[in-house]
Design a protein around this nucleic acid. Sequence first.
RNA 1: GCGCCGAUAGUGUAGCGGUUAUCACUAGGCGUUGCCAACGCCUAAACUCGGGUUCGAAUCCCGAUCGGCGCACCA
Length: 581
Amino acid sequence: MDRNELVNELARRRGFLWPAFELYGGAAGFYDYGPLGAPLKRRIEDIWRQYFVIAEGFAEIEAPTIGVEGIFQASGHLSGFSDPLTGCKECKEVYRADHLIKHIIEVPDALTNEEIYRCMQENEITCPECGGELSSVYEFNLMFKTMIGPGNKMTGYMRPETAQGMFINFPRLLRYFRGALPFAAVQIGKSYRNEISPRQGVIRLREFTQAEAEIFIDPRDKTHPRFDEVKDIRMKFYSQEAQEKGEEEEMSFGEAVERGVVAHQTLAYYVARTYQYLLAVGIDPQKLRFRQHKSDEMAHYAADCWDAEVLLDRLGWIELVGVADRTDYDLKAHTTVSKVNLSVFVNYGQPVKRKKTVVKPDFKALGPMFKSKAKAVGEALRALAPEQLTGEMIQVNVDGETIDIDRSLVSFESVEEEVRGEEVVPHVIEPSFGIDRILYSILDHSYYEDEIDGEKRAVLRFKPQVAPIEVAVLPLMDRSELVGPAKKILEELRSRGMRTDYDTSGSIGRRYRRNDEIGTPYEVTIDYETIEEGTVTIRDRDSMSQVRIARWQVVDKLQALLNGDLLFQDAGDPVRSAKSD
RNA sequence: GCGCCGAUAGUGUAGCGGUUAUCACUAGGCGUUGCCAACGCCUAAACUCGGGUUCGAAUCCCGAUCGGCGCACCA
C-alpha cells in the first residue's frame, strides 16, 4: 500500500472522511466529514479566519449558495463553463464539438448546439479516430441547475465559486467600509461543480468548500503598507522563467518584487500570507511551492497569478490555492450585465485645480431650431473637446445624423475647477483556497510511520492548533478508583474549552496507539500515583516520552503546551520508560 | 463520457456452482497494581445493488453503482 492508500484508509476507518451516501450506493464526488474530519476542517477554517479576516481587518460575509442567472451570465460561468460535446456512434469516443469545427468557424463559441451540429454535417465532419458518424451536439454544463419557486419562472444555479457573492455585494460593501479603498470581503463556504468524472477522493469534488477573499484595491497604487512585514521571508518561487529551467528558485519576497518576479507588492504580500497560513496548518514546506501561471494558462484579464502547490503521494503536484490579480474584470463584467456602476470615487491627497472650458449651448436659440432634438444636440455640444470648437461652424453627431451649428449659438467659458478625485474601478486581488484539498494535504503531510519493537506505528503529526482531539484522558485501567479522578480531570479540561477524548478500553499501550493514529498531541494518564502522590503523567505523541506533573497543574500545563508556550521537556519530571526498568 | 481492471465483517483477506462463508487485525464485555497495538475467556460483525442462467449462485452471464488506471475534461 502506498501512502495515498494508507492515508485514505486511515481517514475512512477513523472517521475523518467517508464516501457520501454509502447506504444507497454512493455518488462520486461527494464526501462526508466524519467526527474527526469535521472538527479538523473547522479548525483549518478558523485559522484561515485568523489570517484573512482578523489579522487583515477584512469582512466575512455569507451569501446564498444558489444564484440567479444574471450573476453567472456576468461571471462567464454559463457560457465558459459549459462545453458542447459530441460522440462517435461507432467507437463511442467523445469530443468537444466546437473544437471539431475550429478550422471552419472563427468563433464557434457564438453558435448554438444546433448550429454547430449543422456546421458539422455540412462539412461532413466524422470521428477523427475511426471516421464513424458523430451524434448530435449536446451541452455539458458544469453548473448545477435548479428552479427557484414553482413553475419555471426563475432559473437558479448552485454557485461554482464563492467569489461572485462578494462582487455582487460591492456597492453595499463599499458603503460598509465608508467608501474608501482598499477593503476586502471574504467568504468560507460550499461551492458546486458538476464535474464530468470526479476522482482522487477529496481532491476533485462536486460539492466542496472554498475560502476566498476579494481584496479591492486602487489600481494606480499596488504597493502594500505592510509589505515590510513579509519582505524578508524566503520561499521557493516557481516562476514562468523558473519553469522553463525546470527548477524552483528560492528568494525573499522583497527580492521577488524588486526583480519583477511577482507583479507587485500587494500580490506578493498575500502570497506571503498564504505561505504562512499553509505552514501554520501543517503543510510541509519541503513539499510546497508557489507556481506562477504561464501566460497561456492565465485568464486573459489576469495581471499575474500564483498557485500554491503541494506534492502529494501518488497524485503529484496539486493546486491548493490560487492568488490572482484579476484586475477590474469582474466588476466591469457585472457593470455590463447589471447596468450598475461599480466604481469608487477616490479623493486625491490634494484637490487639483484644473482649467476647463465649459461649453454653454444657447438653448433659447437651439430649442425652436431643433425642437425635441435640442436636448441631444446640447449634450453633444457639451461633450466636445475645446479644439473641436474652433471655426465658424461646429459639427456634432446626433443619432447618426451630422448637424452643423453656427458658432454664435454656443458660448464658451473658461473656468478653473477644483477636482477632488476621480471615479476608479478597483482592481481585485483574489486569494482562493480549496479547503478540502488543504485538509487532505495536511493528512498526507502529517502521516508517518515508525517502528517500535518491530511493530509498525502510524501517527498523524498534526499541529496542536488543528488536531481534532487535543488531549486524551486515559485511566491506566478501567477501575473505579482511577476512573473517578480521571473523569474529574476530563471535566476540567472540557470546561477550559479543550477538545478531549476519554478512553478506558483495552490496554494502555493500545490506547496510546489509537491516539497517535488520530493525531492527538498529548495524553494524560491517571495511575495509582495520582491517588497516592497527587501526580499524573503527560505523554507526548511525537517522542512517546512522558513527564510527571502535579495533578493541580494539569490543565494549565496542557493549555501552555497546546499554545506552544511551554516545551514538553520543561513541563515536568521525565518518566523513565517502562522498557528500561 | 469512453476503454481496461476490480468490489466478501470496521480494515486486510480466503473461497472459483452445493461450506454453519476462512483467517487475522480491529471493536465490545469480563478479569488483571497495570505504562507503549500485553495476556486469558467470551461476544458482535460481511458476500455492493438489480435482473438472468441453474434443482441450487458470493462463485457463471447482463446491467447499474462505486473505486483504481489510461484517454477526454478540469473557467
